[in-house]
Computed example of a mutant assay.
Amino acid sequence: MIGFEKRMKQDMAVLVLRDAQGITELLREALDAAPAAERPGLERALALVAEAGAVSDAELRARWVRQRLAAAGHEGPVDSVAAIKALRRAEPGLSLLQATTYAREAAAA
């Protein structure tokens, strides 16, 4: 059981959280009660939330990796050894396997 808990902790280093459905519901309620002048803005907001909600978890993790690497000053391929080292320095909680997996995923995205 302890080994399983350790593996789960390693697998969950980068957890993608989404609340697009909740935001969509709130925007729809606001749209239903909105005066005509506010409707175009709320309709655009609904479209943006739908667009954001359609992005895959892999793409979100790839975006996260690229942001961390940019903040660390890394330039070059995101799946290089230097990138993996920079990612692990930026996020010390990542194991080598996690950093490598995320870097490869970012390169493929």
Rank of each mutant, 00 (worst) to 15 (best):
R18S: 12
A54F: 06
L42Q: 09
A58R: 12
A70Q: 15
I84L: 01
V49K: 05
L26I: 02
D79K: 02
E25W: 10
V81H: 09
A108Q: 15
A99H: 09
R61M: 07
G93E: 11
E91D: 14
L96Q: 06
L69M: 03
W64K: 02
A99N: 01
R66H: 07
E91S: 01
V55Y: 00
I2A: 11
G73C: 10
L96I: 07
A47K: 15
L46W: 13
Q10H: 09
I2F: 09
R44G: 14
E51L: 14
I84D: 00
M8V: 10
T101V: 01
V14W: 14
V78P: 07
L31G: 08
L31S: 14
L60F: 10
E51F: 05
R63S: 15
D32H: 11
T100K: 05
L46F: 12
A45H: 06
E59P: 03
L69S: 00
A54L: 03
E5D: 15
P40C: 11
A103V: 01
L48V: 11
A33F: 07
A72V: 03
M12A: 15
K6Y: 03
S56V: 06
G41P: 08
R88H: 11
R28L: 13
E25N: 14
G93T: 07
A58W: 02
V16M: 06
E5M: 07
G53M: 03
V49C: 08
W64R: 12
A33Y: 09
